[in-house]
Design a protein around this nucleic acid. Structure first.
Length: 567
RNA sequence: CGGGGCGUAGCGCAGUCCGGUUAGCGCGCCUGCUUCGGGAGCAGGAGGUCGGAGGUUCGAAUCCUCUCGCCCCGACCA
């Protein structure tokens, strides 16, 4: 490819609407351009990288025996009514109507479509298991698209779906997919972690995420250094803080606390740590009033609450509802004497002598004991884990917080979709059974951004070998010099003949801009042709990742490139 | 959806508070000459519905109203 003819518009300056490194660099390196919020074109160089990811994902899927298909993007809404997800997905689902006013959706994922395919043809356990996958554009009307292709409304995803007659068979495929994902990450040159997760709108109980470590990532996970436990923030549980204060006096008394609403204010007022306080958070769940208790030094995790109550629609009370229930303004709610179902974070079992709101304006209760002064209906893991907590899995290690990008998510769906959609087969006994299913997503376009988050420096992108759009860029320094032009054509032709993807920087620019651009777009090797070395029959090989330069005979340029990529 | 910020040339910005010739700067782009190992110099040049609509005014990028778009924080989410 000749750079002078290649559509590769680079920016010297940082676009003002891009916040994180991958977004800035994808724009600056001419990989993507925005059409509208959360919707991007991939320009030639970006598309090359995207295809590299696709190829690796495809190869690893095929290796597991999964079969590639291409399903529609346009889905009739009735399909989602069968599974209840028309409502469940809510506003995430892009919806549109055809000319006869029939409702359609742009596919956010394909469980319904693939289940519809399977139920039409798979009738016997003898036809199982089967795994189908596709690499395709997905549409989700995100609440807040951001960070370029990292969280886009239109994005490229690989999604696979498996159908089984038994749990064992599902387990095998699930494990095979997990293995495939680990290989994909390795081949892409990405450092990732497999973590326990929550399933969200997809459903199913057992599921794991693959998180690529990155400071700019939106996912938060906790890992135990001593036992290997790893879970995302929605799922992670702990034994609480390593050190827990014990209060000796445990006599309940009412204390006037004028104007002290927040945890910070109240803990300052009593001159105690936040561990001594209890947050009483009031929720409405299926028309019931719920009081949720969590330690003052941590946050309630609403995902955990929804799971504990088995109510995805649980919501915080409005200030008016809070006042109606407690008889006090927001900030003074407490469990003692409250007419609500009390559900306490399980860490509360270890806490003692707590400070709670008194359900009266400007008053708190001190020395409150759970079980004596109030009785929770039950306890459950509700609060968020805090870095430094003791690991619940081994009881010894400390949980460490790490950020990353969710790149893959695999689920055991069980019969959630097959049952709802009456997708059944006959088992060995002639009994009709719903398919046991799994589904396995991988964010292809997101992987490109994640790779950049892990591989960049102040000068630009530093592509891993497997992802680079070009193996080498050939950079002649003076196009007015005949020997330079001759050498450039020769090296370019030789590299192409050897099967490498080469970018020839034949633009009539001075060396500076050429070097800067080459480093910005992140090609790992640069073959520099300048008169200084050429007069001795030499060229320079610059290695972007090592920031190292070798001078080698011109005739060895191809061998150098080959050596680099074969290493 | 709540809070905040920003829309002026391809990119980055000034000008807006306090209205006043032909709306500026840097980079990029075009032409010519010189230059050619880390974003060159000189000379000349092109490029703008000042996001849009309406209003106030003798006069609007600037003031008022409405509206659209983009970004950030939050809620929420694969």
């Amino acid at each position: 490819m000749r750079w002078s003819k290649y559509y590769l518009p680079t920016y010297k300056e940082v676009p003002k609407d891009a916040e994180i490194p991958s977004h800035q660099l994808m724009l600056r390196a001419g990989m993507i351009r925005m059409l509208t919020s959360g919707v991007y074109s991939f320009l030639p160089m970006g598309y090359r990288v995207l295809r590299r990811v696709e190829t690796i994902v495809r190869e690893e899927m095929d290796r597991t025996g999964a079969q590639e298909v291409q399903m529609p993007v346009l889905h009739p809404a009735e399909l989602y009514e069968e599974t209840g997800r028309l409502k469940n997905f809510g506003e995430i689902l892009f919806q549109l109507k055809d000319r006869r006013a029939r409702l359609f959706a742009l596919g956010p994922t394909h469980e319904e479509v693939v289940t519809d395919i399977a139920r039409a043809e798979i009738k016997s356990y003898r036809q199982l298991p089967q795994t189908l996958y596709q690499i395709q554009t997905k549409f989700r009307d995100e609440f807040r698209p951001r960070f370029g292709v990292m969280r886009a409304r239109e994005f490229m995803m690989k999604d696979a779906y498996s159908f089984h007659a038994s749990d064992e068979s599902l387990h095998d495929t699930y494990a095979a997919m997990a293995g495939a994902y680990r290989r994909i990450l390795e081949r892409l040159g990405l450092e990732g972690v497999q973590v326990q997760a929550e399933s969200g709108a997809i459903g199913g109980d057992i599921n794991e995420e693959f998180i690529v470590l990155a400071d700019a990532g939106e996912s938060v996970m906790f890992r135990c250094a001593s036992c290997g436990y790893a879970a995302n923030d929605e799922r992670a549980v702990s034994l609480g803080p390593a050190m827990l204060e014990k209060e000796l006096s445990a006599k309940m008394e009412n204390v006037a606390t004028p104007g002290q609403h927040t945890v910070d204010e109240v803990s300052a007022f009593f001159k105690v740590s936040k561990q001594r306080l209890v947050k009483t958070l009031l929720y409405k769940s299926k028309w019931r009033d719920i009081a949720v208790l969590v330690p003052g030094d941590r946050e309630l995790n609403e995902v955990k609450l929804a799971k504990a109550l088995d109510d995805p629609d649980v919501r915080p009370m409005t200030p008016e509802e809070v006042e109606a229930l407690t008889g006090a303004p927001v900030g003074f709610a407490g469990p003692v004497g409250l007419k609500a179902i009390i559900i306490a974070d399980e860490l509360m079992n270890a806490y003692d002598g707590m400070i709670v709101g008194a359900n009266a304006a400007d008053a708190h209760l001190r020395g409150v004991k759970m079980g004596r002064d109030f009785k929770p209906e039950r306890t459950a893991p509700l609060s968020t884990v805090v870095a430094g907590d003791r690991c619940a899995s081994c009881g010894k290690g400390e949980l460490q917080l790490q950020r990353g990008v969710e790149i893959g998510h695999i689920f055991k769906l069980d019969v959630k979709y097959s049952k709802a959609m009456r997708a059944t087969f006959l088992d060995q006994e002639g009994q009709e059974q719903p398919f046991i299913m799994g589904c396995y997503g991988f964010g292809v376009s997101r992987a490109v951004a994640a790779a950049i988050e892990q591989h960049y420096d102040e000068r630009g992108i530093r592509w891993p070998k497997a992802l680079t759009p070009f193996h080498a860029v050939v950079t002649p320094l003076n196009l007015n010099d005949e020997s330079t032009v001759g050498a450039m054509e020769r090296v370019y032709a030789e590299l192409k003949a050897a099967g490498f993807d080469v970018l020839l920087d034949d633009r009539d620019l001075r060396p500076g801009p050429k070097f800067k651009d080459a480093e910005l777009i992140g090609v790992p090797m640069r073959v520099t042709l300048g008169e200084r070395n050429l007069k001795d029959g030499n060229c320079e090989i610059f290695y972007r990742l090592d920031d190292r330069t070798d001078v080698v005979p011109l005739a060895d340029a191809v061998a150098s490139v080959r050596r680099y990529y074969e290493a």
